[in-house]
Write a protein that binds this DNA or RNA. Structure first.
Lengths: 79, 79
DNA sequence: ACGTGATGTCAGGACAATCTGACATCACGT
DNA sequence: ACGTGATGTCAGATTGTCCTGACATCACGT
C-alpha cells in the first residue's frame, strides 16, 4: 500500500521550530511540559518555536523524538 | 506520478554524517573541496563524517544544500 | 479587579561545537 | 624509494548555543 503520510520539507532551523510548534499544539501539550520531559528550559523551547537561527542537532532529535516526528533524507536530482 | 525517490530515515547526528559522506563520495568531491565551498575546515568535515555526536543545524543545512540533499518531516502515528 | 497559566523576550554566564595548527597513515604514480 | 593527495585525529583557542533569573503580556475564570 502507498505511503499516505504527509511529508513537509525543511530547509532551515526556523522551519524545524515552526513544525515542532504545530505538532506540540496538536498534541495538546504546553511548552513547559515539553521542556520538562526534555530537560530543557521553558524559555528556550519558546525561543526555538519563535524561530531561532540555529540549534544543536541533538536537541532537534530529542524534541522530535518526544513529539513523534520522523526525519527523512534524499539525494536530489538522481532519478 | 508517484514519488520514486529513495528516502532514508535519520535518527541521530551520526546518521546525518554517514549520509553526507556517502553522497559526497558519489558526487566525487573531496572533503577539502566540500570544506572550501562551505567555509569549514577540512578537519571538521572529516570528523563530521567519521560520526560526531552533535553539530549545529546550520552546518547540516549548509552541507546538505551543497551536496543536494533534501530533508523532510512528518508526524508519526496519525493516519 | 484580581489571580493564574501559557507564552515571549532579554542580560549574564556556562559549556560544547568549531577553528587553528600540527602530525600521522594509506594509496597511488613515478 | 620518494612525493603527493586524501583522510583521520588531537590539544588549545574561539564562538555561539543554551541555561539562570527576571520581567512583561495576553486570555481565562472567579
Amino acid at each position: 500500500m502507498p505511503d499516505t503520510t504527509r511529508w513537509t520539507p525543511a530547509r532551515s532551523a526556523r522551519d524545524l521550530g515552526r513544525f515542532a510548534k504545530d505538532v506540540r499544539r496538536r498534541r495538546g501539550i504546553s511548552q513547559a511540559e515539553l521542556a520538562d520531559e526534555l530537560g530543557l528550559t521553558r524559555q528556550y523551547v519558546s525561543e526555538l518555536e519563535s524561530g531561532v537561527d540555529n540549534l544543536y542537532i541533538t536537541r532537534l532529535f530529542e524534541i522530535f523524538d518526544e513529539l513523534g516526528v520522523d526525519v527523512r533524507l534524499a539525494e536530489r536530482g538522481d532519478a
